[in-house]
Write a protein that binds this DNA or RNA. Structure first.
Length: 567
RNA sequence: CGGGGCGUGGCGCAGCCUGGUAGCGCGACGGUUUUGGGAACCGUAGGUCGCAGGUUCGAAUCCUGUCGCCCCGACCA
């Protein structure tokens, strides 16, 4: 590509409130431009990188035996009503009507459509297993899109769906996809971890996220250095060490009702009584499928909503509003507690056996001291409700969790028969009976990979593409365009590389060296070859790798071979 | 959905508090000189100040409403 013709409007500056590196550099390198909140144009450079990622994904998906299809972005409500998600999905699903007032939506995912496609034409166990994938534009009307392509409303996704005869076969498909994903992210040059994840609203029971390590990531992950257990904090099990004091009668004290004005938070209660947060019971009220549930935990810890949801077996869960708290407990936020509640109470292991704690009194601005958990709350069952944090004991082995942040670039789910049953996607088995197909679904955020790659590969000057994702592997930068020798040599290398199938960009613009170097660093091709009057006088060109500081003079005759070594 | 902020030539910003000629830097175009890390000079073009009302002799500036965008939190396959 000739840079004089390239539509890559590079910028020296972007607005001050663009903070995330990948967002900034994609704008500055002229890869993307915003159209609306969370909606972007991909300019030639950005699109080229997307195509690189897509090519890798296709190769590995095909290698894993999946078949590519293309499903529509616009989907009829009817299918979503069949799966039950038309009512369940909420405002993230962008709905609209056609001219005949028929209901439609823009697909945020494609379970419904793919199941419909398969159920129409796949009738026999002989056709299974089957794995169908597509690379397609998704739309999710996110509450708050942010950080450029990191969380857009419209984005490009690879989604795959596997169909199998039984659970064992489905798990085999899952494993194949898992392995394919490892190869894909490896080839993309990303430092990533597969982590155990909550399966969320999409359902199913077995689920892993592929997280790219980055401080700007939105997800929190804990990992145990001892046993290797790695999980999203939403899912991570926390070990219960039995280091809590036992409920000795000798330690037990009388309950006392205390007037505690202005103590709405654990910190304030802690300060009021001059006791550590570990001697306070934190009570959090949730509404699980319209029913209030109180979760209690030691004051220094946080309740994991997802764990509560699982324990009570709810479809949906949310924090209660202040009005709901008063209705359920008689007290506003800050004063609720576990004693005398009529709603269900679930307790974290951390409270087991505690003899002398402070709880909310379920009376505005009052707490009760001297509460003994074994004596006063004898019927509790203790479970793991704790939001995993840095240093917490690993749920598998009790080791100490490390904490890091990640960008979710892939997610694999085992779905079971959730959709196939709801939508009657069945096959005729060897036994001559109809069976619901066992499904899995597997997503990769293509545009998000591009953002994640930049998060991991950049410096103060711009992007440092991994070879596999680079829009161009080689950037040729001739400096003196009025020097025929310089131009000729640059053109010779340019043509030779093209003939060898190398993707190469030549800066044939008549500009000053500084401008060319800045743009080159910004766009981030891995190899830069600078050709100047000075270097040619020695029979050399200047060789510079984007990732490395040093430049090197390389004889003109050796350049092509040297490039071949790296590509 | 709660909190905060911003909409002024293509881009980045000042001006607003205290109403009275719309300004700076970059970019673009023409020219001269330049050419190893975002050049200098001369000249040119380009703005209904997000939109709609209101107050006023007069509104980018004050008031009301509205739309859009950004950030934090909550939310999220």
């Amino acid at each position: 590509m000739r840079q004089s013709r390239l539509f890559a409007p590079t910028l020296k500056k972007v607005s001050n409130d663009i903070e995330v590196v990948s967002h900034k550099y994609m704008l500055r390198a002229g890869m993307i431009r915003q159209v609306a909140a969370g909606i972007y144009n991909l300019l030639p450079v950005g699109w080229k990188v997307v195509q690189r990622i897509e090519a890798i994904v296709r190769e590995e998906m095909n290698r894993a035996g999946a078949q590519e299809v293309l499903m529509p972005a616009v989907q009829p409500a009817e299918l979503w009503q069949q799966s039950g998600r038309w009512d369940f999905y909420g405002p993230e699903l962008l709905r609209f009507q056609d001219r005949k007032n028929g209901d439609f939506c823009l697909g945020p995912t494609h379970e419904e459509v793919v199941v419909d496609m398969v159920r129409r034409d796949v009738r026999s166990y002989r056709a299974l297993p089957m794995n169908l994938y597509q690379i397609q534009t998704k739309f999710r009307d996110e509450i708050r899109p942010r950080a450029g392509l990191m969380r857009g409303r419209e984005f490009i996704m690879k989604d795959a769906y596997s169909f199998d005869v039984d659970r064992a076969a489905a798990e085999e498909s899952y494993k194949q996809m898992f392995a394919a994903y490892e190869r894909i992210f490896e080839r993309c040059g990303l430092d990533f971890r597969p982590v155990e994840a909550d399966s969320g609203a999409i359902g199913g029971s077995l689920s892993h996220e592929f997280q790219v390590l980055a401080d700007t990531g939105e997800d929190a992950i804990v990992s145990c250095p001892d046993c290797g257990y790695t999980a999203n904090v939403e899912k991570a099990g926390v070990h219960h060490r039995h280091d809590a004091p036992t409920g000795d009668a000798a330690n037990e004290t009388e309950q006392t009702l205390v007037d505690t004005p202005l103590t709405r938070t654990i910190e304030k209660v802690s300060a009021f009584f001059s006791v550590p947060p570990t001697q306070i019971v934190k009570t959090v009220l949730f509404i699980a499928d319209d029913v209030p549930v109180a979760a209690i935990i030691r004051g220094d810890l946080n309740v994991n909503e997802v764990k509560v949801k699982k324990i009570v077996g709810a479809e949906e869960i949310r924090a209660a509003t202040p009005a709901e708290m008063i209705e359920a407990t008689g007290a506003p936020p800050g004063s609720i507690g576990p004693l005398g509640l009529t709603c269900r109470v679930v307790a974290d292991h951390s409270l087991s056996g505690l003899p002398n704690v402070i709880v909310g009194a379920n009376k505005k601005d009052h707490h009760i001291t001297g509460v003994s958990v074994p004596r006063d709350l004898p019927d509790l069952e203790f479970v793991d409700l704790r939001m995993a944090a840095d240093g917490d004991p690993c749920g598998r082995c009790g080791g100490s969790f490390g904490f890091f942040r990640g960008i979710e670039v892939g997610h694999v789910f085992y779905l079971g028969t959730k959709y196939s049953e709801a939508m009657k996607c069945t096959y005729l088995g060897v036994d001559g009976e109809e069976h619901a197909m066992e499904m899995g679904c597997y997503g990769i955020g293509i545009t998000r990979i591009m953002a994640a790659a930049i998060e991991q590969h950049h410096d103060d000057y711009g992007i440092m593409w991994p070879m596999a994702l680079a829009p161009w592997q080689v950037h040729i930068v001739p400096l003196q365009l009025d020097d025929e020798a310089v131009v000729n040599e640059a053109e010779r290398i340019y043509t030779a590389l093209q003939e060898r199938g190398v993707d190469v960009l030549i800066d044939d613009r008549d500009g000053r060296p500084g401008v060319k170097f800045k743009d080159s660093d910004l766009i981030g091709a891995p190899i830069r070859v600078t050709i100047s009057t000075k270097s040619l006088a020695e029979g050399c060109v200047e060789w510079k790798l984007r990732r490395e500081k040093d430049r090197e003079m390389v004889p003109v005759a050796d350049v092509l071979a040297k490039i071949a070594e790296l590509i």
